[in-house]
């Protein structure tokens, strides 16, 4: 059987999430544009990044980045990779990589 099935009902949620995460990342970028010129050397960076607010903002940014990337990369797999098994595997690998990156990044922030 080769029936085309659609109707997964998560289109809007992901589309909206991608827009919201983009706004979050844009705001974070603005914040950094303001903050970075005041930074001087390694100690300065360390002081900035261990500030509670910046630490929280960076955390939100990383989560947003990963979610945004997940939707985007998944869409690419959906467009170009047709065999379901291969696509599922790529989805899983993408998820694992993004979760890994997120965990690693968070570890870096909080170890500072």
């Amino acid at each position: 059987m080769n029936r085309i099935v659609v109707g997964a009902h998560y289109g809007l949620k992901d589309w909206l999430a991608q827009r919201v995460t983009a706004v979050v990342m844009a705001l974070y970028t603005l914040l950094m544009i303001v903050a970075v010129p005041t930074v001087d050397g390694y100690e300065g960076w360390r002081a900035l990044m261990s500030h509670g607010l910046i630490r929280f903002a960076t955390f939100v940014f990383i989560i947003s980045l990963c979610y945004h990337a997940w939707v985007g990369v998944r869409d690419i797999w959906m467009d170009y990779v047709k065999p379901t098994a291969v696509r599922l595997m790529l989805h899983v690998l993408t998820l694992l990589a993004l979760v890994g990156y997120a965990g690693w990044a968070i570890q870096v922030i909080w170890r500072l």
């Binding site: 109707g7 289109g11 992901d14």
Partner: peptide, 14 residues
């Protein structure tokens, strides 16, 4: 709207 709320049917439009 229900029918179109789908990652393919509508949201392939980039």
């Amino acid at each position: 709207l229900d029918d179109l709320d789908d990652p393919y049917r509508l949201f392939r439009c980039h």
